[in-house]
Amino acid sequence: MSDNHNEGHIGYPGYIGVFAVLVVGTIFTYFSSFWDLDGMFFPGANTLLALLIAFTKMTFVILFFMHVYWNSKLIKLSAVASFFWLAIMFAYTMQDYLTRGSGVFGQ
């Protein structure tokens, strides 16, 4: 933990600001789901946009509400590592499902 641990927050206005970002993100996610991004770009574009917003919201929560911004490198690392391991689980599971029965390696 860093030395300025006790001062590790963004103050009252900062909290309200983060809160505002979260609320705007939620409302935007809700209404963006009605746009046909799947048709405009590629299947899954709607979900991708929603997930991007969710990631942004999560980053704000982790950094400011959970004070990771002021925390030690170890804490930052563990937060990143857990998502890295999730990514491993997703990626290596999907590399099976997405290559089944088609393409160069398909039966």
Partner: peptide
């Protein structure tokens, strides 16, 4: 906050699929 974050992901992934269809 962690429980909140889980919901931030659950909401778009569960509730908002294919609404544009």
């Amino acid at each position: 906050h962690f429980v909140d974050i889980v919901w931030i992901f659950l909401f778009p992934l569960l509730y908002l699929l294919g609404r544009h269809f």
